[in-house]
Structure formats: C-alpha cells, structure tokens
Design a protein around this nucleic acid. Structure first.
Length: 257
DNA sequence: GTCCAGGCTTCAA
DNA sequence: TTGAAGCATGGA
C-alpha cells in the first residue's frame, strides 16, 4: 500500500477503494473509522486463518525464521485498478519516488485525493503525465487507463477468471509484465499462488535458497510455487519483509534473529 | 560524479 | 525462447 501514511502516534490513514480510512492497532485490537467492519476485514485479510497459512508455508528453517520475525503480517486485497496503476508505475522505480508520483496523480486527478479513476487518467496527455515525473511509465499508465475506461480490460469482470486466464488477460495490458502481473494477482485478486519476484525477493531467494547458483526470476517463481505450495504468495510477503528489514543490499544475511 | 530503484518493451540471435 | 539494450528521474 504505497499511499498509506503513518502519523507519529501510530495511526495510519489511507483508502479502501473509495473510502478514506483511519486505522490503528492497539495490542490485539484494531481501531478504525471510515469503512465498515466487513470492508476492513476483507481489505486486511482478517477473514483468513493466519495460523493455518503460516503452518502451511512453514516448510524450511529460512521461512520459519522469517515467519517468527514477522508474526501477524497479512496480505491486503486492494482494488484492482489502483493496484494495477500503482504497480505499473513501480517499474524500475523506488518506493519513495513512486509514492510521490502516486500522491501527485491523486492530488491533481483524483476525487477527494483518492487514486484517480481510469476515466480521468485516460483523458490526460502523456506530456502532462511526464511533467508529473512519471518518466517512461507515462504512456503505459495512460494506455492502461484507456483500456480499462473503454471496457476492453474488465478488471472487475476478470475476478471470475481462473488464475491462468486472469494472468493472460492482465498481461495484455501495456506496462504489465511477468512481475507486475504477479503483484496484481496477489494484492488485488487474492490469488495466493502468485509469487512476485522483484529485485529484493530475487536477492533474498538467490542468497537463501540458491547460493552460488545462477537462476532466473522465472525459475525462482516456479521453485517457490512447488516449495511453498498453493499459498506461496503469503510466503513471498513474509520473505519480502524479511529481505527489506534484515539485511542491507550489499551483503544480505540469513533471516535468523 | 556514480549507483540504484517492488521492470517492461523491443529487437537480435 | 532467451538475453541484452534502452528507458526517465531523483535520492543516496
């Protein structure tokens, strides 16, 4: 969730679909306002049995340590369009700059500072998007918005598709490749068999699972699917968190506390 | 100044 | 099918 903000007292503000929300955790209690219990539960995957998933993917000492260090971590279920647009812009980018890009887009073209609707972005010129700092991603986002706004990419209707069909459909959208498609499937459509391999997961997996071997991102993804099973997406989230918090990029170490 | 960032598209081979 | 180049921009 690139655009959620945390204030000094641990209160997070952000959006669940069109709803602006405030959320904070106090011990085992989640306090919130701005959305219904049902939507909060769905967005934060509070309706899943975390213990059952953790034990299902807890198949080796590495993921075991990562699970221990990130107990309570959950996947989100974001609105497909916002998730898709965000990850198209994440390409060859860093999170700080990406956040700035998303905030500028929302401020200028979104209602109530929300992520802009595809109909709004479809009308914006590539030149304008580039002036907001999107760089070479500007035409991708515009083209994707046009596809969605025109109904050629029916993101809501695609919820009915099986994993492989959904994957193929998403890959037809400009700016969506092997990594972004996995992110959208996992973070928006709840397809837990997805396993996005970005630079961080790539580093972590090569270090922890393939030392001194040359493997491609695809090989890593296929390994993870076999190794962790049909809910490997949960493992990806835990490993990503472990990678970004437990080693620096120069010399990653094992995620042992 | 150099390096790098939650990659994708295009074009060879 | 696979691999490499090119792509824009700002922070470290």
């Amino acid at each position: 969730m690139f655009r959620w903000k945390r204030d000094g007292s641990g209160v997070f503000t952000g959006w669940i679909g069109p709803a602006a929300c405030r959320v904070s955790q106090r011990g085992a209690h989640l306090q919130f306002e701005g959305a219904s219990v049902r939507r909060i539960q769905r967005f934060f995957s509070l309706d899943v049995n975390l213990q059952a998933i953790a034990s299902e993917i807890d198949v080796d000492p590495i993921i075991h340590a990562a699970l221990k260090n990130h107990r309570g971590l959950r996947l989100i279920r974001q609105e497909p369009w916002e998730c898709l647009g965000s990850f198209i812009l994440s390409s060859f980018n860093n999170i700080v700059r990406l956040t700035g890009m998303l905030d500028r887009l929302a401020l200028r073209f979104g209602e109530q500072n929300r992520f802009p609707r595809p109909e709004a972005l479809a009308k914006v010129s590539e030149r304008t998007l580039r002036r907001l700092g999107l760089g070479f991603r500007a035409p991708y986002l515009k083209a994707a918005a046009e596809r969605v706004a025109a109904g050629k990419a029916d993101l809501e209707g695609w919820r009915r598709l099986e994993d492989e069909a959904l994957r193929r459909a998403l890959l037809t959208i400009p700016g969506v490749g092997e990594k972004v498609v996995e992110c959208v499937m996992l973070f928006a459509y709840g397809r837990t068999a997805a396993f996005p391999v970005d630079v961080w997961i790539g580093r972590a997996m090569r270090r922890w699972y393939f030392p001194r071997k040359k493997v491609t991102d695809r090989q890593i993804r296929e390994f993870a699917r076999e190794h962790f099973g049909p809910r490997c997406g949960w493992a990806q989230q835990v490993l990503y968190c472990a990678a970004r918090t437990s080693f620096d990029r120069a010399e990653p170490s094992a995620p042992i506390s």
